[in-house]
């Protein structure tokens, strides 16, 4: 059987909110080492990869590996019934066709349980190699959210260029053009306010803004976001989820034909 308890249930709520617009359904794979998900959007342009480690949970037990086919809009409906301070326990029997979610209020005076119907999903897995990127940029997650929101109101695609001057986001559309440049900045006492640009070589890539904006639905999960760029490769937008794991979004670049 599978059983996992997380005392900070709001994290689970935020995770599902972060990916439900991007992917309709997918297999959450459970194993003794934790939970993971890899799912592509319907157009195969971007991919969400989620890793939650067993030791990040308050309690974790998984006797055998199994995929749990989840419809994320339905998962979200049930998680919306959990209070933000609730502890959440997930339970499933081996080869079950449902996932039980139990919500406990922080003073344990309210307990509720819901069953989510599981689906059989044939999923495609992509092998994503570990690699060095030409540029890795860490910035406040709120800053990333602001940039992609602002630029989406101006244009459809963004050119992201990383140089020793900083990282520049440029777009243009019917109303005109926009450029936002962030410089390496570690002056704040608060680490989450730092912008750190780790540049091995300059790189410039173009992406569809609506997907980059969609990734910012994960802003509530982490104070910082990391962007990884290499010429002619998908961008990786990564949020660390505390000690629990991470959520990564991959988006294919637009390449001149």
């Amino acid at each position: 059987m599978f059983e996992a308890k997380i005392s900070q249930g709001s994290v689970l709520k935020k995770l599902v909110e972060a990916l439900k617009e991007l992917v309709t359904e997918g297999n959450i794979d459970v194993s003794p080492s934790g939970m993971s998900l890899q799912a592509m959007d319907s157009s195969h342009v971007c991919l969400v990869s989620l890793v939650l480690r067993d030791d990040g949970f308050d309690h974790f037990r998984c006797d055998r590996n199994m995929p749990m086919g989840i419809h994320f809009a339905n998962f979200s409906k049930i998680l919306k019934c959990a209070g933000n301070d609730d502890a959440i326990t997930l339970k499933a029997e081996d080869n079950a066709d449902q996932l039980t979610l139990m919500f406990e209020s922080s003073n344990q005076d309210r307990i509720s349980d819901f069953d989510l119907k599981l689906m059989s999903i044939e999923s495609e897995h992509l092998g994503i190699p570990d690699q060095d990127y030409s540029a890795e940029i860490k910035m406040p997650a709120s800053e990333y959210q602001r940039i992609v929101r602002d630029l989406t109101s101006i244009g459809d695609t963004v050119l992201i260029s990383a140089t020793k001057e900083g990282i520049k986001f440029s777009t243009s559309g019917d109303v005109g053009t926009a450029n936002v440049t962030l410089r390496h900045n570690t002056t704040s006492e608060k680490q989450e306010e730092h912008t750190i640009i780790d540049l091995k070589e300059p790189v410039a890539l173009t992406f569809a803004l609506r997907y980059l904006k969609n990734f910012s639905n994960a802003t509530a999960l982490a104070p910082q976001v990391k962007l990884s760029l290499t010429k002619d490769l998908p961008i990786v937008v990564e949020y660390q989820v505390g000690e629990l794991g991470n959520i990564r979004f991959y988006l294919a670049p637009k390449i001149d034909d």
Partner: peptide
């Protein structure tokens, strides 16, 4: 014009 590529062109399907 730039084209939007499929992710499968970058990473192998397992």
């Amino acid at each position: 014009t730039p084209i939007q590529n499929d992710l499968c062109e970058f990473y192998a399907l397992l």
